[in-house]
Amino acid sequence: MPSPGRAGRPLERSAPVVLRIPAIGVDTPVVRLGLQADGSVEVPAVTADDRAGWYRYSPTPGQRGPSVLLGHVTVGKYGDGVFRRLDRLRPGDGITARLENGTTAEFAVTAVRTVGKKEFPTADVYGNVDRPELRLITCGGPLTGDEYRDNVIVFAVLTRAGER
C-alpha cells in the first residue's frame, strides 16, 4: 500500500510503468510513445493485449503539468482495447499511476469529454496548468468509415502521492 504523501504535491520526473483504473477494470503496463512521421501522436501497438502509452514529451504523472496517456478503444480483430470503457468514468473516480522510481501517483477524475477529432482541444489537453494533472485519451463516438469520429478525453487531478 502506498503511504500517502501531501495531497497534490508535484513529484519528480519518473516515467509511468503501470496504470490502474479500478472503476473500469483497467490494470495495464504503460509503454512510451513519441510522434509519428506526420507529427501526430504515436499510439500503442495493436495487439491482443494492448497497453496504455505515455506521451514522453509530456510531464510524467505527478509532475506539474498535463501528463498525457493514450490507449485504444478497440484493436481491430482483437476486439476491445485497454481504454474500451474510458467513457464510463465519472468525476471522482480514481486513477493510479505507478512510476519507474517506485512512486505512486493517485488522481481523481474531474471531467470526461467526447469531442470531434476535427475539433481536438489541443490547448486543453497539452496546455500549461498550475498543478499535476492527467489526460487519458482514446477514440469514441460513431464510426465514420473505418475511423471513430471522436476522441474521449478524461481529465484528472493529482490527489495523493507516495512511495511504495
Binding site: S40, V46, G71, N128, G140
Partner: peptide, 19 residues
C-alpha cells in the same frame, strides 16, 4: 511549455475490424 512538443491533430486510438 510543460509539453514542449505538441502533437499535430487528434489521436488515432481506435482500430475497427475493417481497418
Amino acid at each position: 511549455d510543460q509539453v514542449p512538443v505538441v502533437p499535430r491533430g487528434a489521436a488515432d486510438t481506435g482500430v475497427t475490424t475493417t481497418a
